[in-house]
Every structure is written in C-alpha cells, then in structure tokens.
C-alpha cells in the first residue's frame, strides 16, 4: 500500500511534467495544424537557459526561470518567422520534417554551448520530507504546485481572455475564425509564446527532477505526444488528463515490467487509444 502511494506521488510528478509539455503540443497543433517534433527540444532549451541566469548571474530561481521562459518563447517565435511560416503553404507534413530538423539543430546548439557533459542546477543531495512512511522531495512539491498553477493559468487564458477564445476558435475552424475577423497572425504568435513558455517550464521541472542533458526533451517527446493523442490532439484539457494518465501508468508499470521499458508504456497506451478511440478522450481534431 505504501509502495503504491509512493509510486502515485512519482507518477503525479512525472504526469505534471508530461501534461505541461502536452498542452504546448496540443495548442500548437490545434492552432497551426502541425505536430511540432522540436517541442521536446524547446523543453531542453528552456531547461538550459535557466543555467546562465541562476548559476551564472546568481539570480533567484523564479527570476531565472522567468527569463528562461522569455528566451524560449522568443526562440520559438523566431523559428516560426524564419522557417515554419515560410513553409506553411507546403503542408503539415513538410513542416513536421522541418521541425524534426529544427529539434536536431537545437540539440546540437545546446551541446556546442554547454558541452556534452551532464549538468545539474545545484549539486548536493536534497533530503526528502517524510510524511509518515511516504518520502517527498521538496523539488517534487515545487513541480506539482507549479504545474497546477500553470494549468489553472491556461484554463483562465482559454476561457476568460479574448486571445484564448480566438485560439479556441482557430483550433475549431481556421476558416471560420479568419472570416469572423480574428487576427490569425497574432493568434499564431501568441500560441508559440504560450506553447514555448509551457515547454520551458516543463523542461526546467524535468531537469530539476533529473539532470540536464542535451537529449533531455527529445526522449520526452514520445510521452508528451502520447498524452496529447490520448487526450484528443488539439484539446488542451484532454492533454492535461492524458499527461497524468501516462505519468502515473509509467510509474506503476515498474511493478510489473522492467523499469528500462518505462518509455514503452507511453507507446503502448498510445497504440491502445489509437485502436480503440483514435480521436482521443475528448474528440480531438
């Protein structure tokens, strides 16, 4: 019982990170209609950008993460302007191939800037807090609370703001959104900012929980997409649910199968949902 509860905590931590990544993927997919294979590497860039501000300039964590988010968002917008925008007419599959290449370029850039070695934000061991027999690291509490706040922010954005409503409209029907006078260029810009900001935070949380490697985000792309598909691609709320389902399932799977096959669990769930209900839990587009 204690073991299950402990695994549940790890699952919620992992699920929080996956959910943040999956919302970003779902938003960009809904508005721009293409699966961004560089999204995992946006996470990596976000995680690494914290380093110069935190370890370098000795800024407080919150300020360093905010600056890293801003940097990642700027990068995402620039990449869209330089590449994706010019290829949009060529169709979503060409964009996908291009984004695959962008991801590899970002990974290489990270390696050039920070070297091939694994890094951490802070060395030393964090003592877990004990809640009865359960052990929780302070970082895990940061991750869970941070994710809940961001999910809430996304919810408010989508339901209460003009921009959020415009994003949903574009996701439901791009043509209808355009004829009803929505400034699509502005919506696209904002979608990249929001998606990249969530990716950067997810990357920071992931690196906080593990460590910094150039392929950090790439290996997270599969669970992130699995969560987005599970929830119904283009449906941010579904992505949140999908993220937690995949995270918890991956942790619980270690009870039955070897932990080395953890990444396969996300894949298995994705395959199952593709067979049973290809549109996902919340009928995606």
């Amino acid at each position: 019982m204690v073991e299950l509860a402990q695994l549940l905590i790890y699952g919620v931590v992992l699920g929080s990170i996956i959910a943040l990544g999956a919302i970003g993927v779902s938003l960009t997919f809904g508005v721009l209609r293409f699966a961004n294979f560089a999204h995992g590497d946006y996470m990596t860039v976000g995680a690494y950008l914290v380093l110069p501000f935190y370890a370098g300039l000795q800024l407080p964590v919150a300020a360093a993460v905010t600056l890293a988010i801003a940097g990642t968002a700027l990068m995402a917008v620039l990449i869209d302007r330089l590449l994706f925008e010019r290829m949009r007419n060529a169709g979503p599959l060409v964009l996908l191939v291009s984004s695959f290449g962008v991801g590899l370029m970002l990974r290489s850039a990270v390696q050039m800037a920070w070297g091939p070695r694994t890094l951490v934000y802070e060395s030393g061991i964090q003592l877990p807090l004990l809640f009865g027999p359960l052990r929780i690291k302070p970082d895990h509490i940061t991750i869970i609370i941070g994710a809940v706040l961001l999910v809430l922010a996304v919810h408010l954005l989508l339901t209460r703001t003009r921009m959020g409503k415009a994003m949903r409209a574009m996701s439901d029907s791009p043509e209808l959104a355009r004829v009803s006078g929505i400034n699509t260029a502005q919506v696209i810009l904002f979608t990249w900012v929001a998606g990249a900001a969530l990716a950067a935070t997810a990357g920071f949380f992931l690196a906080l929980d593990t460590n910094l490697r150039a392929d950090l985000g790439w290996h997270f792309l599969l669970p992130v997409f699995a969560a987005a598909i599970l929830g119904g691609i283009g449906r941010p709320y579904g992505a949140i649910a999908g993220g937690y389902v995949i995270g918890i399932a991956q942790e619980f799977s270690t009870l039955v199968i070897s932990a080395t096959y953890k990444p396969a669990v996300a894949f298995a769930i994705m395959v199952a949902i593709l067979i049973l209900r290809p549109t996902g839990i919340l009928r995606g587009n």
Binding site: A35, L93, L222, F225, I229, P263, A264, A266, V271
Partner: peptide
C-alpha cells in the same frame, strides 16, 4: 502525423 509519432515509439 500519427504514424510519424508511432515510428518514434517503435524506434525507441
């Protein structure tokens, strides 16, 4: 695009 994602899973 679903096949593209699935093919990453297979490769992994």
């Amino acid at each position: 695009d679903y096949l593209a994602i699935a093919s990453i899973g297979i490769a992994e």
